[in-house]
């Protein structure tokens, strides 16, 4: 169980949060203009990296805010946390 530093509430136990999958997958603005393959790419394709991964997390049992986490999935080390809409830190 790791600790997440919610950008709105501060450090809290992981059990208060809900993971929301890969970050920075933007919903297409004109879905109707996409081919089946392009839409499927948005809909289904997600990375599952052993190593540093950009993820969405939600403080579900707290402020309910969504934010982004950069986490090393091999050891759960959190490299960075930033709000929605903010630019991801460059490695």
């Amino acid at each position: 169980m790791f600790i997440i530093n919610c950008p709105f509430c501060g450090e809290r136990e992981q059990s208060e949060f809900k993971a929301g999958g890969e970050a920075h997958i933007i919903r297409p603005k004109q879905p109707t203009e996409l081919s089946d393959d392009e839409w499927a790419e948005y809909l289904f394709m997600r990375k599952n990296i052993k190593g540093v991964q950009f993820e969405r997390w939600n403080h579900a049992h707290g402020c309910r805010k969504w934010f982004n986490v950069v986490r090393d999935t091999s050891n759960d080390e959190i490299k960075a946390i930033y709000k929605m809409g903010e630019k991801p830190p460059v490695e």
């Binding site: 809900k18 805010k65 929605m84």
Partner: peptide, 13 residues
């Protein structure tokens, strides 16, 4: 509720 919040906060802020 969670799903609606998700869209509001992340896709349509």
């Amino acid at each position: 509720m969670g799903k609606l919040e998700d869209y509001l906060q992340t896709e349509w802020p």
